[in-house]
Design a protein around this nucleic acid. Structure first.
Lengths: 199, 199
DNA sequence: GTGTTTTCTAGACATCGTGTCAAAAACCAG
DNA sequence: CTGGTTTTTGACACGATGTCTAGAAAACAC
């Protein structure tokens, strides 16, 4: 068996970068082949199809992202944790120039556009998975924080609310491209959930 | 001058339906030509380009949507108004089978995928415009409601928060496809903004 | 070494997408 | 009826996806 000549992980990173810059549909396999130095045929051979390549690249990204998030959410007061959560989120989808937006949100809205079918199960699950795990991390933070100071009595609902706001921010960011505005909404949300003076 | 053989508005409606079903990139001009009975060439002649056609179709839709929303937000207690606002929003982007999602959100995340440029000014403005006007209507409702019962002291911020949540719901809907969940988040948001027992 | 197996390269191909253009057709003004 | 103008129509160029083929190249078993 001849071994791969390219670094599987490296190609996934490069492919994801292309998808992120140009959108799933906007990035062509020729673009990715050019950017990675791997022939188009080899990409099909190794990953199966464009959508499969995207999903694998996305899952690699999701793993990285969750790790970073976990670190961010690990310490400090509840308010501090939520603040850095919003910070990380906003910084992430405003990275690049022009800002590349939130990959999860973009992927979700872009995929599954074939007449009659929604997005296929694998794709939907990949996106839903990352969102759920982020929500779980936030919920953990809320519970850890609630140990010293209650805030609402329903951490699951609160976490879901916060996640919903971050997805909304990802959308507003593309419409208005005004970072201070986004941070204001984030701060407002934290106040709303914790109470204006809360911890 | 030879007159048009097709109904301009009708074609915009049909085109928008295609874009909504399949996404801006997913709907081809051939699809739209087939669905409307107008030749591809004529579409280019009348609307300029695919993106221009989408924007015109989108703006027609936005006008309709704002009218419906205005009616919905006109009467009842503040809580009732917000409830029907969320109802209308969720119903709208869960219409169709499978649900077609929120056209604004989908368009925003899908467009502007060319390397180096974000979405172009016209498009961004069209989306931002509808969102802003919806936010303004919600703010009006909040102020009208606040006349008999305060709720937060910053109606603009509250309206923006609510809009952010609706955009977030549009994203979550595609990831989870569970309407009851969405309605719970909506209800939670109203409680958060108005206070649990508020009007 | 010799073969086997797997991968990479390089290209052709069918099909579908966008966008442009020139010629034909339909209307209207005079 | 005639000329002018706009729409319609069909052909074209070009690039994307996805499949497939044939051969060269690299590791491994024996």
């Amino acid at each position: 068996m001849r071994p791969r000549e390219f670094d599987h992980d490296e190609v996934l990173r490069i492919a994801f970068d292309q998808f992120w810059r140009k959108g799933v549909r906007g990035a062509s396999l020729s673009d990715i082949a050019r950017a990675s130095g791997v022939q188009r045929g080899s990409l099909y051979n190794a990953f199966g199809s464009k959508e499969a390549l995207f999903l694998q690249a996305y899952e690699r990204y999701a793993g990285d992202y969750l790790l970073a998030l976990q670190k961010t959410l690990a310490t400090g007061s509840l308010r501090k944790r939520l603040t850095s959560f919003f910070d990380l989120t906003i910084t992430n989808f405003r990275s690049g120039s022009p800002p590349r937006g939130c990959p999860t949100t973009r992927g979700l809205m872009e995929l599954g556009a074939v007449e009659g079918e929604g997005l296929d199960e694998d794709a939907r699950e990949a996106f839903a998975n990352l969102i759920s795990r982020i929500a779980a991390l936030v919920q953990d933070a809320l519970e850890a924080g609630a140990a010293r100071g209650e805030f609402s009595g329903d951490p699951a609902a609160a976490a879901l609310h916060i996640i919903t706001v971050t997805r909304g921010l990802a959308v507003l960011e593309r419409a208005f491209d005004e970072e201070p505005q986004l941070r204001k909404i984030a701060a407002h949300t934290i106040d709303l959930v914790l109470g204006k003076g809360g911890r």
